[in-house]
Amino acid sequence: MRILILTTCLLLGVLGTKAQEEPEYRMEIGAGAGAQSYVGDLDANLLRGQNAMAGVVAKYKPNPRTAWAANLRFGKLDGSSSNAETVYPVLNGEAWNFKTKTVDFDVTFEYNFWPYGTGQEYHGARPFTPFIALGMGLTFANADVTGLDNFKKSSTGFQMPFGIGVKYKVANRLNLSAEWLMHFTGTDKLDGLADPYGIKSSGLFKNTDCYSTLQLSLTYDLWTKCKTCMNDDD
């Protein structure tokens, strides 16, 4: 009986040591797809005008609690003055419709509510966690407008994405995440209609256009953390 107990303890010790020797990865790389929608002068409804978007994502993970995520997305926005709750003087009662192609790049800081991982590379890590994200980036937009005089208008503006998400370990090196972000931009030209009341736009919040993104991403772990650092908590 004593031999059985001693053998069991030794096996548990070996398995525990082996679990902590599983590699911890610093990087993730993959792709995402989802929907994005316009929020601005012509429409404040987040659920209206959903358009497909897709992109690539890379993440650097300093520790199981945090990550820096870089996203490059390609998508579309559209809208119409018929959805607006206000009559804009600049339109003179005429219809205004736009379709805008967007390219945006941003870097966000993600904070996980719980340590994220398989639990084999970091003690106490969980394969599922919600997170919050905040960052900065750029948005490039090309609006194709019909109404009044038809024209195309390009614009570039800083953007600040902020939102929430969840991530899940599908396998040891495979991650699935769902993320919703609101992008506050420094431009009022995503819809081609700049300063409809003659109030000059400024910063990221004064009379500027916004858009939201809902993205599902699949990423693969890369870049093994050095073994001499395995016991570090950072």
Results as ranks from 00 to 15, higher is better:
Phe158Ile: 14
Lys167Pro: 05
Arg173Met: 10
Gly163Trp: 04
Ser82Pro: 07
Thr118Met: 01
Ala143Asn: 07
Lys153His: 10
Asn175Asp: 15
Glu110Asp: 08
Thr156Tyr: 03
Glu21Gln: 13
Val90Lys: 02
Gln120Pro: 03
Leu214Lys: 04
Ala19Lys: 08
Asp149Ala: 15
Lys152Ser: 14
Glu179Pro: 01
Thr224Met: 11
Thr8Lys: 14
Lys167Asp: 01
Ile132Pro: 02
Gly55Lys: 01
Asp144Asn: 11
Cys226Gln: 14
Ser37Ala: 13
Leu138Asp: 01
Gly165Asp: 04
Thr17Ser: 09
Asp188His: 05
Thr219Ala: 07
Ile29His: 07
Phe184Leu: 14
Lys206Ser: 10
Asn92Asp: 10
Phe128Gln: 00
Asn175Gly: 03
Leu77Cys: 08
Gly55Tyr: 02
Gln120Ser: 06
Thr139Asp: 08
Thr187Ser: 13
Arg73Ala: 10
Tyr38Trp: 12
Leu222Gly: 02
Asp78Gly: 10
Lys101Tyr: 12
Lys99Phe: 09
Tyr25Glu: 06
Lys227Ala: 15
Ser155Ile: 05
Thr102Met: 12
Val145Cys: 06
Asp144Pro: 01
Cys229His: 07
Glu110Val: 08
Met1Asn: 12
Leu174Gly: 06
Gly32Met: 08
Leu216Asp: 03
Asp191Trp: 03
Gly124Val: 05
Met53Asn: 14
Tyr211Ile: 07
Pro130Trp: 01
Ile199Val: 12
Asn112Ile: 03
Pro127Arg: 05
Leu214His: 06
Leu77Gln: 08
Glu22Ser: 13
Ser154Lys: 12
Val166Glu: 00
Asp195Trp: 04
Gly16Thr: 05
Leu193Trp: 03
Lys152Val: 11
Gly117Ala: 02
Leu134Asn: 09
Asn175Thr: 15
Arg26Asn: 07
Ser155Thr: 14
Leu193Gln: 02
Asn112Gln: 04
Lys227Phe: 11
Arg65Thr: 00
Asp144Gln: 12
Asn63Phe: 02
Phe140His: 08
Gln20Ser: 05
Asp43Ser: 15
Tyr60Gln: 04
Thr17Gly: 12
Leu204His: 00
Met230Thr: 11
Asn45Ile: 12
Ile199Ser: 02
Ser80Gln: 05
Leu174Cys: 09
Asp41Cys: 05
Ala67Met: 04
Pro196Arg: 02
